[in-house]
Nucleic acid binder design. Structure first.
Lengths: 142, 142
DNA sequence: AGTTGTTATTTGTATATACAAATATATTGC
DNA sequence: GCAATATATTTGTATATACAAATAACAACT
């Protein structure tokens, strides 16, 4: 069914969730090539760009909770893509050589994801929507 | 951190997920009064409006997968808010009197959720965004 | 009428995420 | 210098959702 025909299509809860789920599927497709979910991939790219990046920074960049960040890092550690060092209360996340070697592939995924959705909805249209959504994210509490 | 300052804020994956999570929190607040999550509440309202509604219809209305719909119904059954009857391969979902008595409260939640977000982001702005998001949902494959 | 394919629903299992509590460290005020 | 508070991270647990397989019923064609 078209979202436009759903009884609750007027509701922001409904729309934003339906959209996020669909985008997530599209993103999963794009990142399948490197065997990572989009969240893991974004975190990894941040760690490659800024080796030693801390969980607290990742929380702010990815707008996820600390516990979620820990879990994402754990999984990347299992896959030997990052290592963690702890000094005091701080933790640093470093990419392994294996991860660094993956960077071009990661960027390819990012690019093909972008191509994928912008070919469907248009570059300007998608840029506008992203902007509107970001503005809204910033306005909302919590 | 502001979404606008995040490295990946240009990415639709990032924006749509961040937005959906924030909206979800807001919605959870609004529906706390009736002790249901928004998804359960929407499903219940559909069942009250159309007693005997079938899972396949709920799938289309809520844009969720069949298995998710089954799980949502199970929970509402546990709470004695719906009953299921099966004839042949079809299942019908009926609201209980307890659920029907809740309808005004459910509508209140829906209304207060709407008031809540539209007071933050504006009625026109939010209507426009919802429309754009729905259009996008309909354009995306799957 | 029987086989074959299609549709509706449920079940088993996996995943991403969050909340709350626990832990450990650092900072600040006195 | 110690007590109180604040910060960073992890851990235990719960939840919503999905995918894939299982089940069941129906439809259709020969």
């Amino acid at each position: 069914m078209k979202a436009a025909n759903s009884k609750y299509c007027q509701c922001l809860y409904f729309s934003s969730n339906a959209l996020a789920r669909k985008i997530e599927k599209l993103a999963n497709e794009s990142w399948k090539k490197v065997g990572l979910t989009p969240s893991h991939a974004y975190l990894l790219m941040l760690a490659i760009e800024e080796p030693g990046i801390q969980p607290s920074t990742l929380v702010k960049q990815l707008l996820l909770t600390p516990s979620t960040i820990t879990r994402l890092i754990e999984k990347l550690e299992e896959k030997k893509l990052v290592v963690r060092t702890t000094e005091g209360k701080l933790t640093n996340v470093y990419p392994t050589p294996k991860a660094k070697a993956m960077l071009p592939d990661l960027k390819d995924c990012l690019y093909s994801f972008y191509q994928n959705y912008s070919s469907i909805i248009g570059k300007e249209e998608s840029a506008r929507l992203v902007n509107n959504m970001n503005k809204l994210v910033d306005k909302l509490p919590f």
